[in-house]
């Protein structure tokens, strides 16, 4: 099925939500979702890095790896380039856009080598997206990540004060909650999807 950009965005945002449907990027999902404010900062950093990584990896793949016949090197090359790029961007922001740096500075290095970022670059290639489609897909995925993590942070803020038995306090109840949210999102699969 051929998808238009709008459908790609919606698919990445809801139907194939990277956290709740693909179970990728679970470490920031649980690690940074303790409060809404930190999860918003994390989401902004993810959006930023995901977009950059998609562009760079797409160009690298089509301009270098494919012509040279080195497709099997993509994992190493992507990680290397994304890590270096984020390092560079961090320095650039620190120097020239101080406000943006202090808003998401600490989350940038955290997200650099996250599996969610790498997964998006691979999906772009596996689905044979062109650059526009890849951009839309990255945007949708980042938005989906933000939706999941901010939603979940709000739930966890409530869980903190709820009278929960000691055995379930903290991560156990968070995992149970995540499973329930994930179940809810499975309802979207009947719509359409990228597969």
């Amino acid at each position: 099925m051929k998808l238009n950009p709008g459908q790609i965005f919606l698919a990445a945002f809801l139907v194939n939500n990277i956290i709740l449907m693909r179970f990728i990027g679970l470490c920031p999902f649980f690690g940074v979702s303790t409060s809404v404010s930190t999860s918003i900062g994390m989401s902004a950093a993810v959006l930023f890095v995901m977009l950059l990584a998609s562009w760079v990896s797409w160009v690298l793949y089509h301009a270098m790896l494919l012509p040279l016949g080195l497709v099997f090197l993509r994992t190493a090359v992507f990680i290397l380039v994304i890590a270096a790029l984020v390092q560079f961007v961090e320095m650039f922001l620190k120097r020239y856009i101080r406000n943006l740096y202090s808003a998401m500075g600490i989350y940038l290095p955290l997200i650099t080598t996250n599996c969610a970022i790498l997964a998006v670059t691979f999906f772009n290639i596996n689905y044979n997206f062109n650059l526009l489609q890849a951009t839309v897909f990255a945007l949708g995925t980042a938005a989906g990540f933000a939706l999941a993590i901010i939603l979940f942070a709000a739930i966890r803020e409530r869980l903190d004060d709820a009278p929960i038995s000691p055995a379930f306090k903290g991560y156990p109840i968070a995992f149970i909650g995540a499973a329930l949210v994930s179940l809810a999102f499975m309802g979207f699969t009947a719509l359409f999807g990228i597969s």
Partner: peptide, 26 residues
């Protein structure tokens, strides 16, 4: 070919970051 590509890429990125860390130092 792969050694040169990956090594070369790493070297170039390393040099860029080195220059950037000096030029962009706050």
């Amino acid at each position: 070919k792969s050694l040169v590509t990956l090594g070369g890429l790493g070297l170039i990125l390393g040099v860029i970051l080195l220059i950037a860390s000096i030029k962009l130092a706050v």
